[in-house]
């Protein structure tokens, strides 16, 4: 992948916002990859948690926003538990979700979810699903 780097990427408002919402300092990550190694969903992500943090360190807002990673994070906190620097990738992905949802950009359209599925799915799954994917 080819990316363009510039001052405006490295110190962008977007990256600052991520740091403020998550309370994590992106520079703390030294890319050991323990997070992605432990992540139970990284195989299905466009970019694993390590790559997401690296892309954010490099200010690649568009790439990160387009990736499915933030929607797939299950919040199991394995990444945080294994990080030698105490960085929580789960919090960073949560911050990404918050930024997107607060703009009113839903990830799931409630109308398009098939009714039989809604009827049979556990109600706890529905509540946490709509919290996570709908603004």
């Amino acid at each position: 992948m080819q990316i363009k780097l510039g001052k405006e990427n490295l110190h962008s408002e977007f990256v600052k916002l991520i740091e403020r919402i998550s309370g994590e300092e992106l520079a703390n990550c030294y890319q050991c990859g323990n997070c992605t190694g432990g992540c139970p969903v990284s195989y299905a992500m466009d970019f694993g948690p390590r790559e997401i943090i690296r892309l954010l360190q490099l200010g690649q807002e568009d790439v990160v926003k387009k990736a499915n990673s933030m929607w797939l994070c299950v919040g199991c906190l394995q990444c945080y538990c294994r990080c030698p620097k105490g960085v929580s990738a789960a919090k960073i992905l949560e911050a990404l979700r918050q930024i997107t949802l607060r703009k009113g950009e839903d990830h799931e359209a409630i109308k398009e979810v098939p009714f039989p599925f809604l009827k049979n799915a556990p109600q706890q799954a529905i509540v946490c699903g709509f919290r996570k994917f709908v603004s």
């Binding site: 139970p40 299905a44 299950v74 799931e108």
Partner: peptide
């Protein structure tokens, strides 16, 4: 035994959740 069952993503991608 310590890995996630995928409960959080049943709605967004049932396929991955069922995989897990």
């Amino acid at each position: 035994k310590t890995r996630c069952c995928g409960f959080q993503i049943v709605l967004v991608t049932q396929e991955t959740a069922v995989d897990m």
